[in-house]
Computed example of a mutant assay.
Amino acid sequence: MGLHHVGLRVADLDRATGFYRQLGAEVLAPPLALGGRGAALAMAASPEIRVRIVLLAFPDGTGVELFEFGGPTRPDWLEQPHADARLPHLGIQVDDVDAALDRAERAGGARLWPKPSHWGPVRVVYLHDPDRNVVELLDGPLSAVAAVAGGNGGD
């Protein structure tokens, strides 16, 4: 078994969907709108909460689930500000870090590093998605990252 999906909150579901599609994700089904009791149970919030959800999948079968909140009330936990830290983050393996970074920036992302770097043989860069969720782009598998973890693999 393995990673199924990561859930992220976003301000604009359509914009965020476009961003992750630029990184290789495909929409699995049209966005789902929840309100009333169903949204309250799912989001641990009042029944006035409204949420739109979309699930996207990457070619390897892992996914990202995006949540856009609306309605007259919002969950208290939603008001927590995004930190400028690099954790938590969503790591996405891409074929070409520079090309993926270019597409991500054109789709509203903002790099957190001046340029991609190396962790051993893997090129890597961190960026914000349009909602300031942290995304890491890598061009190698997790096993290659782990292989250099015992030494000083970064530059």
Rank of each mutant, 00 (worst) to 15 (best):
G70M: 04
D129Y: 11
G71K: 00
A85S: 15
R111F: 13
I92N: 02
T73P: 03
V64M: 11
D98F: 03
L87M: 12
P75W: 12
F67E: 06
G61R: 09
A104H: 00
E105G: 01
D60Y: 07
G108V: 07
L66V: 03
W113L: 12
D102L: 04
D96S: 02
T73D: 07
P130E: 11
G63M: 09
R86Q: 12
D139V: 05
A107E: 04
P130A: 05
G109I: 05
T62Y: 08
A99E: 00
V94K: 01
G63D: 08
V122D: 06
E79G: 05
L101W: 02
G61Y: 15
G71C: 00
E136G: 08
P75T: 11
R103Y: 06
E65P: 02
L112D: 12
E136S: 00
A107P: 05
L142Y: 11
S117D: 04
W77M: 09
A83Q: 14
A110K: 15
R103A: 02
L66F: 08
L127Q: 10
A85H: 14
D139H: 03
V135S: 05
G108W: 11
A110W: 13
D60Q: 00
E68K: 07
F69T: 02
T62K: 08
E105C: 08
D96V: 06
G140W: 12
R132S: 11
F69Y: 15
P88Y: 12
P121T: 15
A85V: 13
E136W: 11
W119L: 15
D129F: 11
A99W: 02
L87P: 00
L137S: 03
G61C: 02
V97E: 01
P75L: 11
F69Q: 05
V134L: 12
L127V: 09
T73K: 05
T62M: 08
H89G: 04
L101P: 03
R123E: 05
E136L: 09
E105S: 02
A104L: 05
R86T: 14
T62E: 05
G120P: 01
Q80W: 15
G61F: 13
D96P: 08
V135C: 07
I92H: 07
V97G: 07
D98L: 02
